[in-house]
């Protein structure tokens, strides 16, 4: 059963330099317990997509169109008070920088207990007990004592574990994780990835994992959606997309992972820069950087085509033929 269905999501930023269509017609669906990797470069709109689901886009940004169906409710239409009741309760979020997400002047217990008591009328003692077990679940040693500490007494990795524990407190149906391991060093990163995977599997929580790192997605996600310039350009089962990418942009992303090619070989890179979102080219947004682009790409924007079950591409010249990919 699907937990979340996003249809034609549009989030625009109304800046002095013009309207920036950070998210411009994104569709995807997520089943219970499923992990979706949302991949793209900086500025591709992947984080804004995540914040749009929680309706936490900062002004001048605004969700201007589309539907965000969460368990049959359209979050895009929900009054703010009801949205607040869902946040942290049914839908939780983990942020990118663990050094910034915890309030520096409040103790960990304050910040955890308030997350429980914002949604349930429980005693402070009961909320505290739940906080202790959440901290234990994410692998924080002697959680009862650590609860009295302040954020600055934790390392970056530990702080991210606390943030994850907070996300888990109310047993959400969906967690949106916005590059939660990017700011951590590699060993901590792999530990946390393994823990998250296990927790999501045990609790049946669906997970949207936003990242620019395909290596992370490879080990974690069931499905992957590649974003470019505010749109999903390719989506499919993780294995399928990683072994046989169909969009030239996905090929470029995969080629730029170190260790993928032969030793001594130059890393491939995608030529050019991520586009200026306020002035996108008329045709395919990726055309100016694409090795495969022709006149048609520069004038008509391609639509998204489902070329196989669960496999869709937004390209005039896909690099795989229908039926062969799966």
């Amino acid at each position: 059963m699907s937990v979340l269905e996003v249809h034609n999501l549009q989030t625009h930023f109304f800046t002095d330099a013009g309207v920036v269509k950070a998210v411009d017609g994104v569709d995807f669906a997520l089943n219970e317990g499923e992990v979706l990797g949302l991949v793209g470069e900086s500025g591709s709109g992947k984080s804004v997509t995540g914040f749009s689901i929680l309706r936490l886009v900062d002004p001048p940004g605004r969700v201007v169109g589309g539907h965000i169906m969460f368990r049959g409710q359209d979050l895009a239409q929900l009054p703010e008070a009801e949205m607040r009741r869902l946040r942290g309760n049914k839908i939780a979020m983990i942020f990118q920088d663990p050094m910034m997400t915890l309030n520096p002047v409040l103790r960990i217990d304050t910040q955890m207990i308030e997350a429980v008591r914002a949604h349930e009328k429980v005693s402070a003692k009961a909320a505290r007990d739940r906080a202790i077990s959440a901290l234990a679940k994410v692998g924080i040693p002697s959680p009862a004592e650590r609860l009295d500490a302040y954020p600055h007494q934790f390392s970056g990795g530990m702080r991210q574990r606390v943030a994850i524990a907070i996300a888990l407190l109310n047993g959400p149906d969906l967690i949106v994780a916005d590059e939660p391991t990017t700011a951590l060093d590699v060993t901590i990163q792999s530990q946390i990835l393994a823990e998250i995977q296990e927790l999501a599997r045990d609790t049946g929580t669906a997970l949207i994992w936003i990242t620019h790192d395909l290596a992370v997605v490879a080990g974690l996600a069931d499905r992957v959606a590649v974003m470019y310039a505010g749109r999903i350009v390719e989506t499919g089962q993780t294995d399928a997309v990683l072994t046989a990418p169909g969009h030239p942009y996905s090929v470029g992303l995969l080629g730029s992972i170190p260790g993928h090619g032969q030793r001594g070989e130059r890393l491939t890179q995608i030529p050019g820069m991520a586009p200026n979102m306020a002035h996108l080219p008329p045709g395919c947004a990726f055309a100016p950087r694409c090795f495969n682009a022709d006149e048609r790409c520069r004038s008509d924007a391609p639509g998204i085509d489902e070329i196989d079950t669960g496999r869709a591409l937004r390209c005039h010249h896909p690099l795989i033929t229908p039926g062969v990919s799966a």
Partner: peptide
């Protein structure tokens, strides 16, 4: 923003 994401008023 994180406090808002927790559903705090």
């Amino acid at each position: 923003k994180f406090a808002r994401a927790k559903g705090v008023s």
